[in-house]
Lab assay of single mutants.
Amino acid sequence: DEVTIHLGDKTIRVDGLDKELLEILKELARRGADEEELRKEIERWER
């Protein structure tokens, strides 16, 4: 499953996201997290 996250004018595509992680990323994005913060969160989950 590829998920596309839209952040204002930026788009991040991620393969096979965990549903819980997806919810966390959506919440972070709502709070104004930037792409770098979201990537760090994704990397934390992948470990």
Score class of each variant (00 low, 15 high):
residue 44 R to Q: 09
residue 25 L to E: 00
residue 36 E to S: 10
residue 30 R to H: 05
residue 14 V to C: 07
residue 18 D to T: 10
residue 33 A to F: 08
residue 26 K to Y: 15
residue 29 A to T: 07
residue 21 L to Q: 03
residue 22 L to R: 09
residue 2 E to R: 09
residue 44 R to L: 09
residue 39 R to K: 09
residue 45 W to A: 01
residue 7 L to G: 04
residue 20 E to P: 04
residue 2 E to V: 13
residue 7 L to Y: 06
residue 6 H to S: 13
residue 4 T to N: 10
residue 25 L to P: 00
residue 40 K to G: 06
residue 45 W to M: 02
residue 40 K to N: 10
residue 38 L to M: 07
residue 41 E to I: 10
residue 35 E to Y: 14
residue 35 E to G: 04
residue 36 E to W: 15
residue 2 E to I: 14
residue 43 E to V: 07
residue 10 K to V: 14
residue 38 L to S: 00
residue 34 D to S: 15
residue 42 I to L: 05
residue 19 K to Q: 11
residue 46 E to P: 06
residue 2 E to H: 13
residue 9 D to S: 07
residue 38 L to R: 01
residue 6 H to E: 12
residue 10 K to A: 12
residue 27 E to I: 13
residue 31 R to Y: 05
residue 41 E to K: 02
residue 5 I to Y: 00
residue 7 L to A: 08
residue 15 D to A: 12
residue 26 K to P: 00
residue 25 L to G: 00
residue 10 K to M: 14
residue 16 G to I: 12
residue 3 V to M: 14
residue 15 D to I: 14
residue 11 T to F: 08
residue 11 T to L: 13
residue 28 L to P: 00
residue 20 E to G: 12
residue 11 T to Y: 04
residue 13 R to F: 11
residue 34 D to P: 11
residue 1 D to L: 12
residue 8 G to K: 10
residue 13 R to G: 05
residue 5 I to F: 01
residue 5 I to W: 00
residue 18 D to P: 15
residue 22 L to K: 05
residue 4 T to A: 10
residue 22 L to M: 11
residue 47 R to W: 11
residue 20 E to A: 14
residue 3 V to H: 13
residue 10 K to C: 05
residue 22 L to I: 15
residue 6 H to D: 12
residue 24 I to P: 00
residue 43 E to W: 05
residue 28 L to G: 00
residue 38 L to W: 04
residue 11 T to H: 07
residue 3 V to L: 13
residue 45 W to S: 01
residue 9 D to N: 12
residue 12 I to E: 02
residue 35 E to S: 07
residue 11 T to N: 11
residue 6 H to L: 11
residue 15 D to E: 13
residue 9 D to W: 02
residue 16 G to R: 10
residue 30 R to M: 08
residue 37 E to D: 12
residue 45 W to Y: 06
residue 47 R to V: 09
residue 33 A to Y: 07
residue 13 R to L: 12
residue 31 R to V: 03
residue 40 K to A: 14
residue 35 E to L: 09
residue 15 D to Q: 08
residue 10 K to N: 10
residue 9 D to T: 06
residue 36 E to H: 12
residue 34 D to N: 14
residue 19 K to H: 10
residue 11 T to R: 05
residue 6 H to T: 14
residue 16 G to Y: 10
residue 44 R to W: 09
residue 11 T to I: 14
residue 11 T to W: 07
residue 18 D to Q: 14
residue 34 D to F: 04
residue 7 L to H: 04
residue 23 E to H: 09
residue 39 R to L: 13
residue 13 R to A: 09
residue 24 I to S: 04
residue 35 E to A: 10
residue 25 L to I: 09
residue 38 L to K: 01
residue 47 R to A: 13
residue 30 R to S: 07
residue 45 W to Q: 01
residue 25 L to H: 00
